[in-house]
Design a protein around this nucleic acid. Structure first.
Length: 130
DNA sequence: GAATTGACGGGGC
DNA sequence: AGCCCCGCCAATT
């Protein structure tokens, strides 16, 4: 018996995903890092796969892709939905991560809701908004 | 309960 | 960029 029911863990995952803004994407690993508490990338993938249809209305599942920047759910209209948000793909069908990757929740929100922040990324790469 | 699979990630090469 | 290996957690067989 777990101290925390699985459905509650999924709820936390969905809640974080809801924070990913329109026109941006995040990765399974990033979401897991924010959720914390023994959550990993695969768990996020599981939560999304098990997510009931009605949840899809508020949870932007399409914005969650793998770290390589390519979509896993081939066949679904994921790419179509992302392009509709203005997210661009390169010639290899990969999202340009350096440009569309979400930097994580605000410190205020994370603290207020009991989530982690994304570790700062070093490389000179950053999401310059212009 | 072991083995396998899965909308995964990081480190090596 | 790719491929391989290993670790991770949950569900299924």
């Amino acid at each position: 018996m777990r101290n925390e029911p699985d459905y509650l863990l999924y709820e936390r995952i969905y809640r974080v995903i809801e924070q990913v803004p329109h026109g941006m994407v995040s990765t399974y690993g990033d979401i897991a890092a924010i959720v914390g508490g023994g959550c990993d990338a695969r768990t996020v993938g599981y939560a999304l796969r098990e997510m009931p249809e009605n949840r899809a209305d508020s949870v932007p599942w399409q914005r969650i892709i793998n770290k390589a920047g390519d979509i896993s759910t081939r066949g679904l209209r994921q790419r179509q939905l992302l392009e509709a948000e203005g997210i661009a793909f390169d010639a290899r069908d990969h999202v340009i991560m350096a440009r569309f990757r979400w930097a994580g929740p605000t410190p205020e929100w994370a603290t207020a809701n009991g989530f982690n922040l994304l570790p700062p990324r070093e490389e000179g790469e950053q999401l310059s908004i212009f």
